[in-house]
Design a protein around this nucleic acid. Structure first.
Length: 510
RNA sequence: GGGGCCGUAGCUCAGUGGUUAGAGCAGGGGACUCAUAAUCCCUCGGUCGUGGGUUCGAUCCCCACCGGCCCUACCA
């Protein structure tokens, strides 16, 4: 038993919560739930990034103060996560006083350590991006993102001496092989560092909506530099050193591949500059790409649908919260790009959830009803399923430890499949009531109990419902995994509930 | 311009310097009828993008090319 501190990126409030945000957040949630189940002291942090010119502009457009505006837009994320049963322990907003305090202390420490200096930034500026581009990065003098002409500008800025950390970053990477996973992403970051680092400008005078620079009131910190520090704010940086010391060594950042630079290069360098160890682990995930006919047809007016156009709620209305969670976790290995499609989620729902798990529960309940008068028998301690269950638990546990929810679920469905086959072989529905029937059905019920616990990080609602139908008191997460994920704990002798189909099949090819 | 990733069965993806390259789904056949027209068993199916090279031997290593994609310093 240890500690597990997992974070998502903080989401930019101007975006509406979409499936991409949900993908990251739900993976973090499942990992957090697994670790709690194992008795680890767990801290799961998410939140919103609320500074920058774009936020100030959006607020002005709605005739609101930036604070009032972000109060509203930040709440959308909380609501989305609550609807998806995301069990965050802390929701941080970069506009909170605690964050201002930590940012100023953290960057103040870097300043005092001599890694921040004043310079003049000269370059081609894009007003929409609020950023500069080099001539090479520009599109013939136009912004590569917005296509607008870039203007030549000069601004006095404070710079972070990133270039001073090349060697120390390389050393850190060499000494911590698991710092960034998967390995291909680690190599990407490593190669970038080896390629040479330039100093980066970290303040702005042209913007007011940000954290003031403590030693130069005319400046505010540029959004990214304040945003990263949220991971430390939440554990009390600058306010509670003991808490930082307790949690920071167990930190895991879950991020999308587009922000590798910030998390795998800048952020560890910033930590070193402030006199702190870098975070212990960054887990990078890939992107969900929209595929399939359904989404493209119905949701794209013109051009392709973007994942960012899809709100998680519209999917939960159609499939339910747990099936959506299952699909996002099961379909794609964390770290790889994956495909997100209407057809894909429908297929996962029908095959894995309805046909395999849901049908297993239904058929077992029916036979218990007809052969055991609805009273559950106990499992056989020496059942052939016991060994399969044990290896399933081992595989799943190892997968969760390695940030591989899809593998944990895959293993669990292997056990479900073995149990369906086991029933086929013994055909309890053909046997006369008695001890042999009881053994077979008790074994199947025990598998369902184990499955309830095993799927609880991914599908907490389904886990609770399975538990209830089995006639068990409390919830599947009341006991720690090492106690509950052991063959033979199902007591039997209790009335079970048949209930409606857990996952009614989705027919028709919509 | 620079850097990187990917291309393996109809689909989504695993995988390893060495005997017959795997899974799930889809397809085909059979069994069963407890169950959500579900389940179980068997089965079809791949010149591992193309062309070279290294090697006793490459899908896996190197080079080039073709095709798709990403990053280039604020969109999960």
């Amino acid at each position: 038993m240890g500690r597990f501190y997992i974070t998502t990126p903080i989401y930019y409030v101007n975006d509406a919560p979409h499936v991409g945000h949900a993908y990251t957040t739900l993976n973090a949630d499942a990992l957090a739930r697994w670790h709690r189940l194992n008795g680890d002291e767990t801290l799961f942090l998410t939140g919103t990034d609320e500074h920058g010119q774009k936020v100030a502009d959006a607020a002005a457009k709605h005739d609101m103060t930036p604070q009032a505006w972000t109060d509203r837009t930040s709440a959308r994320f909380r609501e989305a996560w609550d609807a998806l049963e995301v069990s965050y322990d802390d929701f941080i907003r970069t506009t909170e006083p605690r964050h201002y305090e930590s940012v100023q202390k953290f960057l103040g420490a870097i300043y005092e350590n001599g890694y921040i200096y004043k310079g003049v930034y000269q370059g081609l500026y894009c007003v929409s991006c609020e950023d500069y581009y080099t001539v090479e990065a520009s599109d013939h003098g136009n912004c590569p993102i917005h296509g607008r002409p870039l203007t030549e500008m000069e601004e006095e800025n404070w710079f972070f001496r990133l270039s001073a950390f090349e060697d120390r970053l390389i050393e850190y990477y060499d000494a911590h092989p698991g710092f960034v996973t998967p390995e291909t992403k680690r190599n990407e970051a490593y190669a970038f560092i080896k390629g040479g680092l330039r100093d980066i400008s970290i303040t702005r005078t042209s913007i007011a909506w940000g954290v003031p620079v403590p030693w130069d009131e005319r400046h505010v910190f540029y959004v990214w530099y304040d945003a990263l520090i949220n991971y430390l704010t939440a554990i009390g940086y600058g306010r509670d050193d003991d808490r930082v010391a307790a949690w920071w060594p167990s930190s895991h950042h879950l991020i999308g591949k587009e922000i590798i630079r910030f998390h795998c290069v800048w952020w560890p360098a910033m930590c070193l500059a402030a006199g702190l160890e870098p975070p212990s682990h960054v887990q990078v995930h890939g992107w969900l790409l929209v595929g399939g006919q359904k989404l493209s047809k119905t949701m794209a007016a013109e051009g392709g649908v973007k994942l960012t156009d899809i709100a998680p709620v519209t999917l939960t209305e159609e499939f339910g919260v747990d099936p959506l969670r299952y699909y996002l976790l099961r379909e794609t290995a964390l770290g790889n790009d994956g495909e997100f499609s209407y057809e894909g989620i429908t297929q996962r729902y029908n095959t894995d959830l309805a046909n395999n798990l849901g049908n297993l529960v239904a058929r077992v309940a029916t036979v218990v009803g007809s052969k055991c008068a609805g009273v559950a028998p106990a499992p056989d301690p020496r059942s052939e399923l016991a060994a399969i269950a044990a290896s399933t638990v081992e595989t799943a546990a190892s997968a969760w430890e390695h940030f591989a929810p899809h593998a944990a679920l895959e293993a669990t469905w292997g056990l479900i499949g073995a149990t369906n086959a086991y029933l086929e072989r013994h055909a309890p529905w053909k046997m006369a009531p008695g001890e042999p029937v009881d053994r077979v059905l008790g074994d199947a019920l025990e598998v369902i109990r184990l499955v309830a616990v095993l799927v609880s990080p991914a599908m907490p609602g389904v886990a609770r419902e399975l538990w209830r139908r089995l006639g068990l008191a409390g919830s599947p997460t009341d006991e720690l995994a090492h106690e509950s994920l052991v063959w033979g704990r199902y007591p039997g002798g209790i009335a079970i509930e048949k209930g409606e189909p857990l996952f009614p099949r989705i027919n028709e090819a919509r």
